[in-house]
């Protein structure tokens, strides 16, 4: 009976925990950038990180696929697990981790290669395709999922840098999807895009929720409200409040969250 209840609850609210962070601290040299962050991120959900500039939301996001490793002075403490496996375990290869946890960046950053090669890059380095046909299939599937196939199918050999800003960002999403990740991290993916391109990308994020756990950092509260089911509010390196998006935007518990949402800080 007890088990049934749990299973039922998990099914109904899709609360399978994908990522679990426990007392995470991040230091940049002597600067304590992230303090004591505990968070559980659910699978097949869009989780939004919001907060004023410099609150640490991007820093925390970059901890989830160990992109912070590339910065010499950055140090991470505490536990972050994905599917129960500690990603900062010395046995973990960040390369494998990043294949599993894809990332889309603030500014679209297609490689100066063709559209096809951009998407095929990940599958090639990870050896996901045994032959050209399989690779073609992965590329097409990824571009379709990123809602770019119709625009790009006739110009796969054209350079990725020749696309418009919104198309470039969707290409970057396709590129990230192509490695068959389980989690997709998005660091302000729409901040460099115009409103129409933003709407297209947001629509895409909503669809991606079917297959992935999506974590998105945004400075736009409206965007968080539109695309996410869960929202975490960061302030000065602390995770102030984490709850269902509806709750955060209608009835926040912490006064700081309320101030931010009503536009008084930030």
């Amino acid at each position: 009976m007890e088990d049934m209840y749990h299973a039922d609850r998990a099914m109904s609210t899709q609360q399978d925990i994908k990522i679990k962070a426990d007392k995470v601290q991040v230091y940049y040299a002597d600067n304590h950038a992230i303090k004591d962050v505990d968070v559980e991120i659910a699978d097949k959900t869009v989780t939004a990180f919001i907060g004023p500039s410099g609150c640490g939301k991007s820093t925390f996001l970059r901890c989830l696929n160990r992109m912070n490793d590339t910065i010499d002075i950055c140090r991470v403490e505490g536990d972050i697990t994905i599917d129960g496996e500690d990603i900062y375990d010395p046995k973990v290869d960040p390369v494998q981790l990043r294949a599993k946890v894809g990332m889309v960046f603030q500014k679209p950053n297609p490689f100066p290669k063709s559209i096809y090669d951009n998407v095929a890059y990940g599958p090639k380095i990870h050896g996901l395709a045994r032959n050209k046909a399989e690779l073609d299939e992965i590329v097409e599937k990824s571009l379709r999922k990123a809602a770019l196939w119709n625009e790009a199918k006739d110009r796969l050999t054209a350079p990725g840098t020749g696309l418009s800003g919104g198309q470039q960002q969707r290409l970057c999403i396709a590129r990230a999807i192509a490695t068959a990740p389980e989690v997709l991290l998005m660091d302000e993916p729409c901040s460099a895009l115009d409103p129409i391109a933003t709407a297209q990308v947001e629509e895409l994020i909503d669809e991606l929720r079917q297959s992935y756990s999506v974590v998105i950092v945004t400075h736009s509260m409206q965007q968080a409200a539109r695309v996410s089911q869960k929202t975490a509010f960061f302030h000065l390196g602390n995770l102030v409040e984490y709850d269902d998006t509806d709750k955060i935007f209608t009835n926040p518990e912490d006064s700081r969250t309320e101030s931010y949402i009503s536009g008084r800080i930030g």
Binding site: I82, E85, K91, V92, D93, Q96, L97, K100, G127, A180
Partner: peptide, 17 residues
């Protein structure tokens, strides 16, 4: 295709080499 992060697969080993 569930793989553990804790064990590097053969391909990753090769790539790291």
């Amino acid at each position: 295709m569930k793989t553990s992060l804790l064990a590097a697969d053969a391909r990753t080993k090769k790539r790291n080499a």
